[in-house]
């Protein structure tokens, strides 16, 4: 029998998510809320790669940037409709991921991280230097805001419905992937690549698939960003951005879907609260990250799962995974 908690869990979350604009329409708060949704999608997209296959990208801002510029350019310069921009953003970013993934994912270990680090820097330099296409450091202005039927989503609080819906769609797709045959194959690769291959899983194929899906979602997040602030400049896609996406995912917990969202929301909001301490803000941000990975290596996701089990009353949830990791590391 399903408990009241598990029946109400999802409706309550949806009410909280969509209810936010009814509580406040303050542009600053709503802009932050939009950014939290966008970063959640980004952290989730990275989690498809890291949580599922164990590979990771240190240049995810590149795909985010490719998505933002693709959608921005084809709506501004070609005048295409915005939904076409969104699709193109995902497709082009996904293609870029595919092209980078094919040669580098054949290799084991940290090579993908290394290649994505370089790729991120190259994309940034191209965005800055290819002035005739991207307008260079000055950025691309006049990115239109979307309209749905009679509604024009040109305010932060109205745009929020779009970004929240986008997040829900991405979460749904990632869950579907997680429990699909493809997702299981990816998890098997993460746990033990050699054993997975022995079971007939083509690890390169699945790693490239994961990377392409991951960059596709990052591209969608980029388009979402471009139409939210209606302006794109290379400065939004610097290496530091990739690093913060990575931190959001790890603080949230590698492999945890709710963790990624909570991690992204926390690391979007915490720096804003820390503004009170002025320049010490980023010092504390760095310290929080070091402390999190040292003392809570499972991330927030581990706590969320524990809380979920406790609320659902499904026995005492013990973090067996953490112990296993420790034993494995000591061996």
């Amino acid at each position: 029998m399903r408990s009241l908690y598990s029946k109400l869990k999802i409706p309550v979350m949806l009410v909280v998510l969509y209810g936010l604009p009814f509580v406040t329409q303050d542009p600053y708060v709503m802009h932050l809320a939009n950014m939290a949704m966008i970063y959640s999608i980004l952290a989730l997209s990275l989690n498809v790669l890291t949580g599922f296959t164990g590979q990771f990208s240190v240049g995810h801002a590149a795909f985010y940037g490719i998505g933002a510029y693709t959608s921005g350019l084809i709506t501004v310069k070609l005048g295409w409709p915005i939904w076409a921009g969104f699709i193109a953003a995902g497709v082009i970013a996904g293609l870029a991921g595919l092209l980078l993934g094919i040669p580098t994912l054949r290799l084991r270990g940290l090579y993908l991280a290394v290649a994505t680090l370089g790729f991120g820097e190259i994309v940034y330099q191209i965005l800055v230097n290819w002035v005739s296409l991207t307008n260079g450091p000055k950025g691309l202005t006049g990115v239109p805001s979307p309209t749905i039927g009679p509604w024009r989503l040109d305010m932060y609080h109205s745009y929020y419905y779009l970004s929240a819906t986008a997040l829900i769609v991405v979460v749904f797709l990632v869950y579907r992937l997680y429990y699909s045959r493809v997702g299981r194959a990816m998890l098997a690769i993460r746990e033990n690549e050699l054993a997975a291959e022995a079971m007939g899983i083509n690890s390169t194929y699945y790693k490239i698939t994961a990377f392409t899906i991951s960059s596709f979602f990052a591209g969608i997040a980029g388009a979402l960003y471009a139409h939210e602030i209606m302006f794109v400049s290379p400065e939004s896609f610097v290496n530091a951005e990739s690093v913060s996406i990575l931190c959001m995912m790890v603080v949230g917990g590698v492999g945890s879907i709710p963790g990624s969202i909570v991690g992204a929301i926390a690391l979007t909001i915490i720096p804003e609260y820390l503004r009170a301490v002025g320049d010490w803000r980023l010092v504390l941000y760095g310290a929080v990250i070091v402390l999190m990975v040292t003392y809570a290596p499972q991330g927030l996701g581990g706590w969320i799962t524990a809380l979920d089990h406790w609320l659902a009353g499904t026995g005492h949830y013990r973090s067996g995974r953490a112990k296993k990791d420790k034993v494995a590391a000591e061996v």
């Binding site: 890291t50 931190c247 790890v250 760095g286 310290a287 070091v290 990975v293």
Partner: peptide, 30 residues
């Protein structure tokens, strides 16, 4: 920032170095 993470997962050690870098850089900026 490094010694406590000996034996931790690869990605956690990587993130710790990122965190340490952010901390040091901004400490000097302050």
């Amino acid at each position: 920032a490094y010694r406590p993470l000996v034996g931790a997962r690869e990605i956690n050690r990587l993130i710790a170095t990122i965190g340490a870098g952010i901390l040091i850089r901004n400490l000097y900026r302050v």
